[in-house]
Nucleic acid binder design. Structure first.
Lengths: 217, 217
DNA sequence: AAATATTTTTAGTCTTGTCTAAAAAATTAT
DNA sequence: ATAATTTTTTAGACAAGACTAAAAATATTT
């Protein structure tokens, strides 16, 4: 069994490994968790003893099989709760994160199992991210950044990179949501900003926005 | 804002005050929380500084208005989650307690509000206990013990005193559930055991059982 | 390859919440 | 009313998790 703190470390390392492969540095973990590198060193030693990760001094850490499963199960719970909040309790996709962050630590296999069934075994959360199964497996949705489209290409919004409230509210305001068709009308070569058509309306978005939206063709 | 531990102390004291009035002893709290009296003294000092209770050395403690509201809100969440687990996730009434014990600490006013609405604003939990409103008010269901009935009197099961898994499973096995009509056929003066009729079947129960079932006439 | 800069670890401290053992107060019994 | 008992509090210690400051290792420059 893991403490709240241990679970948060596992989840952070899991996410970092998803993005940048194996061998995660102390500093990367510290900045993700908004803590200090020295605290990370302490915790990482503890987790190494529990066999959920491998740690060699000055070499960063890597999750073991068991560590990956444990972390994926936390992510699974987080995303299931997000679906619940949006579909059943009228939360919008920018409001779910903080609450799911708490709910993901509830320990009850039956609860997770039944919640999954109650929601109809969803495959993705409200931001388009895949929900791992009990064994920690999940389809890595093949997705590209909106910014990788060329002029006149079309895609469907399948996810976002940044889940901050600000960003999601911006998307809502402009009619961009999961499943929405996005057409690139033109690309401004000067600053990389795009003119896109979404939900029938034409819209100009910065390149920064475009690198935070995932689409599928 | 209160820590997990502080919330558990508040809830314990709240429950003790419900049963035995004001001025709760250190020892009573310690035994309810399965901790030591010295730990209670420490925590109680902390909570007194936070103005949620009044503490005078050697005199026991009493919740303030604000302490009562805080505690009732935790109880509110606990009982709403119990309803959710039983009504939506196929938990039986003997399985809900441990999970609700975790869920009651989730901090999100919107979550509590929406959950309440989602469940149709229930007034009692699966054990028949009243669900406080946001302000901490609740109808104290006037209930009597089954053991207070005389021969040939009839009542409806509205709650239980003991919520342990063992006891609830015993009730399930014998067809006793909330809303069930119970008729006292005879009382054995020797040991106080009762012969009752419930769900069409005749059943003999000990006096201990009868003092753990609440009925309304 | 030495010097500098960065990253990581160690050592020691702090807070929260708990515990044990001993002291102090309150209660009960004689 | 004094003695014995029980309850409660104090004092000091400990574990978890975090922090600061300094030391050690690694990386980067020149």
């Amino acid at each position: 069994m893991f403490t709240l703190s241990e679970e948060n470390y596992l989840k952070a390392i899991f996410h970092l490994e998803m993005m940048s492969g194996t061998g995660i540095s102390t500093n990367a973990i510290a900045s993700k968790l908004e803590t200090k590198a020295s605290s990370v060193t302490d915790m990482v030693k503890k987790l190494a003893e529990k066999q959920v990760l491998v740690y060699k001094k000055y070499q960063g850490v890597s999750l073991t099989k068991s560590g990956k499963t444990t972390a994926a199960r936390i992510v699974r719970k987080h995303r299931l709760w997000e679906v619940f909040l949006v579909e059943k309790l009228n939360f919008s996709w920018d409001e779910v994160h903080d609450v799911a962050e708490q709910l993901e630590h509830i320990k009850s296999p039956k609860l997770t199992r039944e919640l999954d069934a109650f929601l109809g075994f969803p495959k993705t959360d409200p931001h388009g991210d895949p929900i791992p199964d009990h064994e920690g497996r999940f389809d890595s949705v093949e997705k590209r950044l909106l910014s990788s489209l060329k002029e006149n290409e079309v895609g469907v919004c399948v996810g976002v990179d940044d889940s901050s409230s600000n960003f999601l509210q911006y998307l809502d305001k402009n009619g961009i949501s999961l499943g929405e068709k996005i057409e690139v009308l033109s690309i401004e070569s000067f600053d990389g900003s795009l003119s896109i058509k979404v939900a029938g309306k034409v819209l100009s978005i910065s390149s920064k926005i475009a690198t935070n939206i995932y689409i599928q063709s």
